[in-house]
Simulated scan of single mutants.
Amino acid sequence: MFIPLFFANVGAHLDPSVFLTPDPFLFAVVVTGVVVKVGGSYLGARIAGQTGNEALVIGVGMLPRAGVELVVVTGALAAGVIDGRLFSAVLALVFVSVLVTPLFLSRAIGRVGEGS
């Protein structure tokens, strides 16, 4: 019951104009967040003995962000630790990571099936 209210509250704090103007900071946060999450998970899977393609599936599968990140960034905004620009950049990262994962994951799984 409270989860939809939380997401509505987070959305209410978002400044949609951030997405309408090109912002190198927002782009850097999104790209860095995606690369670091996939790369770190990939590296961990490789260390654990997975093949390159299997590690890629694990890395991409770990990409989606949502719950914990939204709680932390909302709390940081409320406490005044971060500003609206960083808040919007992190929300963009959450949004992009959730939307691109199915596409990337299906391609990564296809690579494992091909054995390449």
Rank of each mutant, 00 (worst) to 15 (best):
Q50G: 05
A48H: 05
V31K: 01
V100G: 07
V112E: 09
L105S: 07
N9P: 03
L5R: 06
N53D: 11
Y42M: 09
D23G: 12
A66Y: 04
V38E: 00
G67P: 05
A79V: 09
G59H: 02
G67F: 15
I58W: 04
L20M: 13
G49L: 08
A28D: 01
Q50P: 02
V81S: 14
R85S: 06
V73K: 02
G84L: 00
L77P: 08
V71F: 12
V18E: 12
L56T: 04
A76Y: 13
M1G: 11
P102L: 03
V29I: 15
G59Q: 05
I3E: 14
V68E: 13
R65S: 10
V96T: 08
F87Q: 00
V31I: 08
P64D: 15
V73I: 04
V90C: 01
A79I: 07
T101S: 15
S17K: 02
A76S: 13
G84H: 02
F27K: 03
A8Q: 04
F104W: 15
V68S: 11
E114H: 05
R107S: 08
L43R: 12
N53K: 11
G110I: 01
V96I: 12
F25C: 02
V94S: 12
G115S: 07
A28C: 01
D83K: 01
M1F: 10
L20Y: 08
V94E: 04
E54C: 06
G80C: 09
V72R: 13
I58T: 12
F7A: 08
G80P: 03
S88H: 05
E54Q: 14
I82L: 08
F27H: 08
M1R: 12
I58A: 07
L105I: 09
E69P: 04
L26N: 12
P4Y: 05
T51P: 08
G61T: 15
G113V: 11
V31P: 00
F19H: 06
V18K: 07
F6Y: 13
I3K: 09
S41K: 02
P16C: 02
V30Q: 09
